[in-house]
Every structure is written in C-alpha cells, then in structure tokens.
Amino acid sequence: MQPLLEIKDLDISFRKGGGRLLPVIDAANLHLNQRQAVGIVGESGSGKTMLCRALIGTLPRHGAAITSGTIRFDDQELAGAPERVWRSIRGREIGYIPQSSLAGLNPVLTVETQLVESITAVQSQSRQQARQKAVALLERVRIPRAEQVLKARAHQLSGGMRQRVMIAAAIAQAPKLLIADEPTTALDVTIQREILTLITQLRQELGMALILVSHDLGVIEEVCDSVMVMYAGASVEAGPVGVLSTSPRHPYTRALRVSRVDRAVPGTDLEAIPGDAASVGSWPAGCRFWPRCSLADNACRRDPQPALMPIGLQLSACIHADRMFELEE
C-alpha cells in the first residue's frame, strides 16, 4: 500500500550568524499509512514540535530550514515546497492542533468569529453558510448547546471546551491527516480521557490518519497503532506500539518505559536515566544517547549517529539492538 506520509532522513537547521548551521533535527524518519495513527514521543528539545511545523510548512521563516531529506505526502514532495503548494495542503489536507492550543483562541473574539474565519479562509462561501458549518463542526466535536458556545469568548469556556473548539477548527476541511501536538498536556486526567476518546472517534468517522505528539507513552499506547521515538533530533526507534512497549530495541525507549512511575514498585528506587537529555547545540559526537547508555562502547562514541535498521517488527538506531536483554540484569 502507498503510504500517506513518508519522511526520509529529514534534517532541519537554524541559520546562525556567519553562515553557521545549528541542527535541530538530524535524521528524522516517519512512515504513516492512510487512516493509521502514529505517536511521536520524546523529551523537550528532541525536535517533535519542529517536525510538526515542517509538516504544515510553518518553520520559522528566517530561522529554520530543511537542509536535506524528503517529506512525501500523498504523492507530493513537500520538503522545500513553495508557499503556493502549502496553501493547498495546510488546513485542507493536513489539520493541525498546535501545542498550548489552550492559548490558541483570541481572547477578544467570539468562537463564531474565529471558526467562521478558519472556514472562509480556505473556502469562499457566505457568512451564513459558514456559520451553519461552524455549528455543525461544534456538534461534531460533541459540544452541547453549540449555538451558545458560538457566542462565547475563550475565557468563558473550560480548558476541555477550548480544546474541542481548536479540534473543530483543525478538522473543518476534513483533512486526510490530523496532527495533534501535546493535545492534552495541560488538561486534567478526566478531561484528557474525553479528548483522547473524541480524537479517536473523529479519526474513525472522517477516515483521518493521525500524528499524536506526546511525552507520555501511556497516552500514545492508548490512541496509536505505531510509535516513533525521538532523541536529540533523530528517530531512534519505530514500530507497532505493542511491540515497542513489550520489547523495545533501543536503550532510550526502554529507559522511558522503566523510568515510569506508574509501573514502579512502591518502596523501591525508580530506574532513572542518568544525566540530562542532550540539548540542541550540544549533541555529543557518535550516537547521541551514548553518554547516558550502559551499553555504550568505543564504536558508539566513534561512529556517527546510527541509521534506523530493521530488527524484528521494528526499526532501531542502536548498533546493539540485539543486546537489550543485557539491560534487564
């Protein structure tokens, strides 16, 4: 089957003074079929949000640029595509719920003004038509009393309600792909559960594929079919969620899993990853995870960041992917 989205060896750098480049993404890879859901997990600074912005063509205009690699979406090449092409993709083909979207609504405008704007921005139609469509969209995201909510401003709505409005705007054109960047991070657990359920329902109703960005493996395991793990700008492991959670093939994925508090035995220490996450501008030479890895040897320190290689049902960027069992002792 032809994938909906295929990202290959994508590199993104910030341009610094004197023509220097500061890489923020180096070797990102992602494969997504129609109607499938993939989760991207990684810590702050790993490049998750920058990757999302590359997928909707909103990299900081004078700052960051794709320096190599390809983004193939629905038979089109999007890496380096001109703004004219992006206008036919953004919002229409790929919907986007930005991070901290709770702050994404304009506080002085009503929900109606903002939803109608996002509808007429891509489709020319009368205000009345757009308004009807806005009501239908709010109902689609299970907002009761949609007519009343249309007249509301952001401060009158709860966090969960605001997130539903943002989702309504993102799916207004029934896109083929929805990207949700940390959609539940600032929400209470009960509301988080409702929003994740809604996203799953909408995905089935509209036949959308989904990219869900989260730092929480639990959230991704609940919603997604597969997962891609990012560390310091690189894809380090990818595969079906069930496989990665039971038999990870990269030490970082394993560490993310065993350091989780909800699986720990009370009264015992958590298995913490030593040190701090490699931050942009100070990636170590060699495999970027080696300073925190107990499997690291001279090859890990010497050779460049390993490429993703197939092992079993997944892909791993660890040259010791066959030695994970040693970490169990």
Binding site: E43, S44, H215, D216, A255, L256, S259, R260, V261, D269, L270, E271, A272, I273, D276, A277
Partner: peptide
C-alpha cells in the same frame, strides 16, 4: 519536567 528527569527527582524525594 521531562520523564527521565522525573525519575531522578522522585528518587531524591524518596
């Protein structure tokens, strides 16, 4: 805070 840093902090508090 990030997940790998969480474990470090919680071990300290414990």
């Amino acid at each position: 805070i990030d997940q790998s840093a969480q474990a470090q902090l919680l071990n300290l508090l414990r």
